[in-house]
Each structure stands twice: as C-alpha cells, then as structure tokens.
C-alpha cells in the first residue's frame, strides 16, 4: 500500500502531461486531411453504414490546440459575425442548435467550405491544422470538450466566463434560431 501511493500519484501527474502536449509540426505532406471527413452516415446501396473517421479527439482533448483555436478565432475575425460565441450577424455557437451539424467534422467542413447566407469558405486560406484547432475551440464554447483541456483565462478582458468554467450541459439550451436557419423547413 505504501508503495502504491507514490506510483498512483506519479500516474496522476503524468496523465496531465498529455492534455497540453504541443505538436508544432504536423505532417508536411501537401493535400492531406481533406478526405478524412465524412459528413453523413448515409451511404448508397446495401452494406454497412459509413463510419466517421477522425472525430477530432486529438484536438478536442488537447489544451494547446484549444487555446490556439481561441487565439485564431479572434485573429481571423470569427468574432466579427459570431461575437464571442453568442452570435451576431452569424449564428450563435454556444447553444445546442446547429444548422449544419455540431460534430467536429461538420464544423471543420463549415469553416473550410463555407455555408450559404454568409459563411465564407476558408479553403486554401487557413491551413487544415488551424481549421481543426478553431473547430475544436468552437466545440469548447458549447462545453463539448473535457473541462481540464478547455481554455481558461483570457489575456485581455473577459466578455463571459472562460470555457473551462461553463456548466457541464451545453451553455445555452435551445438557443434562438437565426434567420438563416429558418429558411424553408
């Protein structure tokens, strides 16, 4: 028992190292990543339904990627339309209403390809790894990432409680649907 305690303590400490493991150099091969995303589980013909590939876990459970996503969210002016997640001329990101799906892949796709009624496409303008960091951060606004990895304090003024202090359910349930989501039902 006496020996177990330090081992358990060491394990607890070491497990914390992974949450902010910094991967600065993603694979330098051009054009990777695009095909990894399947947006729908519907497949033509008989046979097993398609399974989603990369679910973005590596990004959503990593504090470094999430805080980078938070920085890029401001740098690339996502705030211009989505404000700090509450929505403005673009839909809110912190509620549980998603017009084009709230899974990691849906958000990556929305950023990369754009969406009707105003969301521009950032294909070729933002490198894939950065899009995934932003998508993971967007997921953290609705409290869909582990609490110990979600970004904490801002460097400047805080418009709302930081992401790691949000309640465990989605921050805002049944948020209002923006006009773009009310188009023909």
């Amino acid at each position: 028992m006496k020996r177990l305690l330090p081992i358990a303590a060491a394990l607890v400490f070491l497990s914390a190292c992974e949450r902010e493991d910094r991967e600065f150099r993603p694979s330098p091969v051009a054009g990777g990543g695009d095909a990894a995303i399947s947006l729908s589980s519907i497949a033509p013909g008989p046979g097993p339904a398609e399974t989603r590939g990369d679910t973005g876990k590596a990004y959503e459970e990593n504090a470094y990627h999430l805080s980078e996503g938070k920085r890029l969210f401001a740098w690339f002016n996502c705030k211009g339309c989505h404000a700090n997640g509450g929505g403005g001329s673009g839909p809110a990101l912190m509620d549980d209403r998603w017009i084009y799906g709230g899974e990691f892949q849906n958000i990556v796709q929305s950023i990369r390809e754009g969406r009707p009624n105003g969301m521009p496409s950032f294909r070729g303008k933002i490198p894939d790894e950065l899009i995934m960091q932003i998508a993971a951060y967007v997921r953290s606004m609705g409290r869909h990432v582990p609490m110990d990895a979600a970004p904490g304090r801002n460097d400047d003024l805080m418009p709302r409680p930081s992401e790691h202090r949000l309640p465990s359910s989605p921050a805002v349930t049944r948020g209002t649907v923006p006009p773009s989501g009310q188009a023909p039902q």
Binding site: P28, G31, P127
Partner: peptide
Amino acid sequence: IVDAQGIKPGAHMPLIKLE
C-alpha cells in the same frame, strides 16, 4: 516559409503547404 516550426517551434507562423 517551408518549416517555420522547425526553426522556431511554437511561433505563430503555421506550416504552409506549398508545392
């Protein structure tokens, strides 16, 4: 341009995939 992260790891210059 090709490998900013190898020269200055952690800098905000991302890896740009160029031909």
